[in-house]
């Protein structure tokens, strides 16, 4: 999984983004590049701005400065955030200098995500959850649906097949008809990944995939993320607190602290980096050291 060629083939480029909430600067001048096919981990103490970075990448927040560009597998570049001034008149906000895409547009471009606290469609079955993800790539409109045109039925069968295949892939085939809310925690995590994969992403953002899982579930998750990366060729960007998981999974690591990138590199380098050690107060397991500290940030994320 280590990039075979050192030649640069970035899938996403974050260039000097700054995100402010009023007087609070959540991200300042953050830049990072992820190579195609890479598993990149973003770590940092609580309140370092990791989830803010995710929300910028997925169009939930629009940073005031900087660019984010996504390069898809077909050579097309999509500007997720860029300095496109909007028409400042009627309804336009002249103070928003950066133009950002909406979450569904970002998803359409090829970036899918999971959430820190899993956000499944709880009253639906596991199968339906995945199917909704798959169907966002289909084209049936209301007229086609009401008349149940041949194309509609064809798409329906196609998405059924894709959803089954994805449930099989994440190992939830037996759970297909279970209500999402009835699934155990680890299964919910995997179902969320299946739903995200349903939208055929090229880049998958995982927000603390292992949070709240037990060691057995964690091992399975590691295997699943590897499989997503190897078999499906999906690049993975993950936020994680669990250093063990990060060290085994990540090809490269970016360390954030107080909204700034303080280090980046392969796991071994980052572990030795004095700035990183200082940020984590020298504690071997950052989770223990920083469990309660750090300003609570990202309130609006819920």
């Amino acid at each position: 999984m280590v990039p075979t060629a050192t030649a640069s083939d970035p899938i996403v480029q974050v260039e000097a983004i700054t995100l402010r909430f009023g007087g609070l600067t959540s991200l300042s001048d953050v830049s990072l590049t992820q190579q195609r096919g890479e598993i990149l981990a973003v770590i940092g103490p609580n309140g370092a701005g990791k989830t803010s970075l995710f929300n910028c990448l997925t169009g939930v927040y629009h940073p005031q400065e900087g660019n984010i560009t996504f390069h898809d597998d077909h050579g097309k570049s999509v500007e997720i955030v860029g300095p496109k001034p909007r028409f400042a008149g009627l309804g336009g906000k002249s103070h928003v200098r950066n133009h950002g895409r909406k979450p569904h547009q970002v998803n359409r471009a090829g970036i899918a995500r999971t959430f820190q606290t899993s956000r499944l469609f709880n009253a639906l079955t596991a199968f339906e959850n995945v199917k909704i993800g798959v169907e966002s790539r289909m084209h049936t409109g209301p007229i086609g649906a009401m008349l149940r045109l041949p194309r509609t039925r064809h798409e329906d069968r196609e998405s059924d097949a894709r959803a089954s295949e994805l449930l099989e892939f994440v190992g939830l085939r037996e759970r297909a008809n279970d209500i999402a809310s009835s699934l155990p925690y680890g299964d919910r995590r995997r179902l969320e990944i299946a739903r995200a994969l349903g939208t055929s992403p090229q880049l998958l953002l995982l927000d603390e995939p292992a949070a709240g899982t037990n060691p057995a579930e964690k091992n399975e998750l590691v295997r699943l993320i590897r499989k997503v990366n190897d078999e499906r060729g999906v690049s993975v960007l993950l936020i994680e607190h669990d250093m063990g998981l990060v060290m085994t999974l990540a090809d490269r690591i970016v360390v954030l602290n107080f909204g700034q990138v303080i280090a980046s590199g392969v796991p071994a380098e980052v572990q030795q980096n004095p700035a990183v050690i200082e940020a984590y107060l020298g504690a071997p397991d950052p989770e223990d050291a920083y469990d309660t500290s750090g300003p609570a940030e990202d309130g609006p994320e819920k």
Partner: peptide, 21 residues
């Protein structure tokens, strides 16, 4: 249909629906 399920998704969790495209 796809449309009906999209409505359910929106009703249940708008944020998750948006990021599911």
């Amino acid at each position: 249909s796809r449309v009906g399920r999209a409505w359910v998704a929106i009703r249940e969790d708008e944020v998750a629906a948006e990021s599911s495209g």
